[in-house]
Design a binder for these strands. Structure first.
Lengths: 200, 200
DNA sequence: AAATGAACAAAATATGATTATTGTTTATTT
DNA sequence: AAATAAACAATAATCATATTTTGTTCATTT
């Protein structure tokens, strides 16, 4: 008989929330390796069995924690982008917010104890799957408004925006020093709208 | 008394070559962790003391091996780029060659045994320092030929070219499937010369 | 119905003794 | 002069074993 598949945990379920909160707290404090299911249960004041009911194994739990983290990030970002007028402003925000997240969020504390794990995550293409699906509406909107060319395929534009955003988040410095929001914005304005060609 | 500083090994010195060749062979076969200085000495048919004379410690030896690897790559790339007419062709070549190197070179075999080490290297900004210094002449040449705008600062253009090259090497797929040389080239032609704006 | 707690074998991890490697030094050889 | 070989303490890897943790099951509780 086909039981629970564990593939899509319900982030609204109070039990799931309790588990993820506890797990997140543990990872934040001890890292993934030194976090046991028993410890998560203790911190969340629940039974180990409940965790295994909602997440098939430790790996799924860890994955669930990071997926929720990313989902919350994308939701926050989405909300912020709605208020921004141009694609340049949106990508600028994504970069600034992305950096803040990597520097202050759960990744930052994990990087202290398990830098190789974090590095592997950042280089895993799957890590960016959700973010890729995030951009097409914004690309189309920018095309409709005439900010960018209507002749470019949405998938190509998405790819480019993602590459810029990921690159600028992972590497604040790659020849140029791009620290402040204003510098990031003016850099993106040139690069995103005209590449290395003449401005319009 | 100030002795040898170990900071810049002479890649022309036959002894240095023997050490690096042996070390490279060992890393290729066993990975960094399972390579001992004694083994390198045995493979290179030389004494452990000689290795310590030329490289202060194991870490310096490993660094020396990767630095030479990168230097050879840059030399090969430089030679190939001289024959290419446009910046687009040059970046295309750099991406294709870079991928080949990461998929077939010493990094590929290392990734089998120590993926976290490789991941950490790829995310280390220092790893790209030499490559950054590589592009400015090509940028200026493209400006002189009128391929790209003369109004853009060389450092900004270098930064952009580096971001594209690194991103496309590390992530063959980031929304778009960019496998073949021709697809990479046409993508770069659009992105590099016009960004998301209209072509000229 | 879902959560709990206890029990369990299998797998992973910590522990401590043992062995190998590192990095230094020194005398000797090329 | 540089390379070698051997000796050495300090550090790190290894391995067998004790301990913990995992993932599963099931009777009991909420």
């Amino acid at each position: 008989m086909p039981q629970a598949q564990f593939n899509t945990p319900d982030y609204a379920d109070p039990m799931v929330i309790r588990i993820l909160d506890a797990g997140e707290q543990c990872i934040h404090r001890f890292g993934i390796r030194r976090t046991s299911m028993g410890e998560v249960a203790r911190v969340g004041k629940l039974s180990r069995g409940s965790i295994y009911r909602h997440f098939g194994d430790k790996d799924s739990l860890v994955q669930g924690i990071f997926r929720r983290q990313q989902e919350l990030f994308l939701n926050r970002t989405e909300a912020a982008l709605e208020k921004l007028p141009t694609l340049v402003d949106k990508v600028t925000h994504a970069v600034v917010a992305g950096r803040k997240d990597t520097e202050e969020g759960i990744f930052a504390s994990l990087a202290q104890t398990e830098p190789e794990t974090v590095a592997s995550m950042y280089l895993d293409p799957k890590f960016y799957g959700r973010s890729v699906a995030f951009w097409p509406p914004h690309i189309r909107e920018a095309q409709d408004k005439g900010e960018i060319s209507a002749g470019i395929e949405v998938s190509a534009a998405t790819d480019f925006v993602m590459r810029l955003a990921v690159s600028m988040t992972l590497f604040p410095q790659m020849g140029l020093e791009l620290r402040s929001r204003s510098r990031i914005r003016s850099y993106l304005e040139q690069i995103l709208l005209s590449g290395l060609g003449e401005g319009h």
